[in-house]
Amino acid sequence: MELGAVIDGVDADALLEIPLVGLGFREPLADWILSMPEEIDCLELTAEHFFDHGEDLLEKLRDLYPLSVHGLGLSLGTPGAIDQETLNQFQRVADVANARWISEHIAFTKTEDVDLGHLNPVPLTRKSLKVLVDHARQVMDVCQRPLILENITSYLRLPEELLEADFINQLCQQAGAGLLLDVTNLYINSCNHRFDALEWLHRLEPSVIKQLHIVGYSYHDGVWHDRHCEPIQDELLELAAQVVSYAPVESIIIERDGVLPPVSELELELQRVEDVCETARCS
């Protein structure tokens, strides 16, 4: 049985556990990140960025921060075998980084012949579920690390046998994986497909949520997008706070890509997220 954290002679209230707050590592930020700013607690590395190079950098980062490794191209939703070479490279990166856990998307990015170049939603059917479960287990067997799976944004509504939240619950349960809940993706889907994000969340088994992704959404021509280019909006922080208040979230990663903001802005965002977590856990 897990014991609660305590401080000698003081009430349990004195020690507040909150998620680590960190960033998705991007090479242009390397100098800043290596200077170990106080705001960064942990990092998430994109595996594909280190497939061909960067082992020295990986080792440096490993010594400074708790790391997790995030994959883009394993294509767990594609029926058939996982590309062995990609999986081996993924495993190598996870090993060098000594990743606390690894993550991938609930999606497919390629067929047998074609690399589609995008994360595509899988049909929410029992057949897809089996494919994903098998592949998730295989990845964990090879990498020997916990795996968490991320929900994606989708502009399509595919035929479904299961609700998405139920699909994820079953996937995590059967594969023994956790959930990387992308709060922004959830929010965007809820806006584009007009459903209640909180209702979706409450259908989800809280214990599977291990990590959050968050970044500002973009809005263009009546459609919400996840371009990873915007500061985090308040409604996303509220949604994240909801999750943190009841789920055992261990870390929150801010994902910024494209035109990265000045580090002072990133510091502020990290601080905001930490404040939100603190408030959520206090309440």
């Binding site: 994109t46 594909e48 883009l72 995008h118 944004t153 989708s154 993706n185 997008h225």
Partner: peptide, 18 residues
């Protein structure tokens, strides 16, 4: 929108994303 999905801007990888 059909080609600018949420994951639109983030793939620069060995597998030819984006």
């Amino acid at each position: 929108p059909s080609i600018t999905p949420g994951y639109g801007s983030h793939y620069v990888g060995t597998s030819g994303f984006m």
